[in-house]
Amino acid sequence: MTRWFPDGMPQPLADSEAVAWWEAAAEHRLVVQRCTDCAHTRLPPAPICPECRSDGSEWHEVSGRGEIYSYTVVHRPIALDQQVPFVIAVVALEGAGGVRMISNIVDADPDELSIGLALEVAWEDMSDDLAIPRFRIVR
């Protein structure tokens, strides 16, 4: 089990809409929310489709591949014993209808990063109940 970030990193805060997303993540399933009426996909989870205002939705599992949409290399630690610099990225998810998510890029030299670079999910088990989807460069 690989760990990249310390236990002191902020824990997710979820309303009732997002709990199921984190439950899927705990099983290493990366999902996006898809409208059952118009098939528009969305993240973060929300009760209403912003395109057709339907309240029907389902969880659509995606491949875990994606690419860098934007990123920043952060030189200030968030938690004690955290290695810096670390990378925060906007990841455009493959097969997700254009949905992006915030995540980290791990096992990468900041100098090799560029927008458009292909990524794949790398799950970090913070505990039995919490897995965080981080990403690594496809090599």
Partner: peptide, 25 residues
């Protein structure tokens, strides 16, 4: 052990979805 915590507002739910990646400032 670290786990998912309840968000008490829409703002906290919003930033709570990205905080675990260290996007705090």
């Amino acid at each position: 052990p670290p786990t998912v915590q309840p968000a008490s507002s829409m703002m906290l739910a919003s930033i709570g979805f990205t905080m675990p990646y260290g996007l705090l400032n």
